[in-house]
């Protein structure tokens, strides 16, 4: 290791003395201390922060759906917060059909060693759209795609929102929704028939790669060749 190299240390924000963390013991159920960021969010965004919940010492902040990207951007940039690490993006649908779907972001502030859960509510019957945080965290890329794949929640602003785990032509819907049966909507033979009917080789075409951002600008003849599933590069 050379002299000039300085590793980035977690828990070492400038001007703060953060005590060495220890394993939490006897975690209270409801009356834990909330994360200081929750108060800061309330002071900064006021109405957009709908509710703050502390369960098992984990702070959950319910925020306004329209302002998610703005709030996350502030949490990421503000020198007193510095939530620079996005742990997870996911969603929760409850068994109670009337309860709204919750989209959940788990954020970590490495310099301050904080953990914050952001939630926003998507009411049933309304379009399932939330702002994407891809522009702030690149790690959101696949996690948002997965969330779209499993729940059908669209992330507004995501550059390439496609199915990621299930195949593109999957017809049965969004598996983690509560109205989706455990064994799928179709019978097993129908599921098998559908997937075997897909020609795997056709998926090696340029078209699927989305390299062709300007597909429409190609000559007609080129487009036809690609549509016919031509494998480029052989």
């Amino acid at each position: 290791m050379s002299e000039s190299f300085l590793p980035v240390l977690a828990g070492h924000a400038e001007g703060t003395e953060v005590a060495a963390p220890s394993t939490p013991r006897n975690i209270p159920y409801r009356d834990g201390t909330p994360n200081p960021s929750a108060e800061a969010l309330r002071a900064r965004f006021g109405e957009a922060v709908q509710r703050v919940d502390v369960v098992w010492d984990e702070t959950t902040v319910f925020v306004d759906r329209a302002r998610v990207a703005e709030i996350v951007q502030w949490l990421h940039d503000d020198p007193s917060q510095r939530y620079d690490y996005l742990s997870d993006v996911t969603a929760v649908e409850y068994r109670d059909v009337d309860r709204p779907i919750e989209v959940v972001w788990h954020l970590r502030s490495l310099p301050y060693r904080r953990f914050l859960r952001l939630k926003t509510l998507l009411y049933k019957g309304q379009p399932l759209v939330v702002p994407s945080v891809w522009a702030i965290y690149k790690s959101a890329d696949w996690m948002e795609r997965e969330c779209y794949d499993m729940f059908g929640i669209r992330f507004d602003g995501h550059p390439d929102l496609r199915r990621i785990l299930m195949w593109e032509q999957y017809k049965e819907g969004f598996p983690l929704r509560k109205d989706f049966p455990l064994r799928g909507r179709f019978s097993r033979s129908e599921q098998l028939r559908q997937i075997l009917a897909l020609n795997p080789e056709a998926k090696y075409s340029m078209e699927e790669l989305s390299v062709l951002d300007a597909f429409d600008e190609l000559s007609l003849e080129q487009r036809q060749r690609l549509r016919a599933g031509e494998k480029v590069g052989e």
Partner: peptide, 18 residues
Amino acid sequence: PDPRSQLYIPPPLIDEVS
């Protein structure tokens, strides 16, 4: 495999074993 369904064994049998 059956050229129409691409399956070796009849669909009811698949449903049964599944």
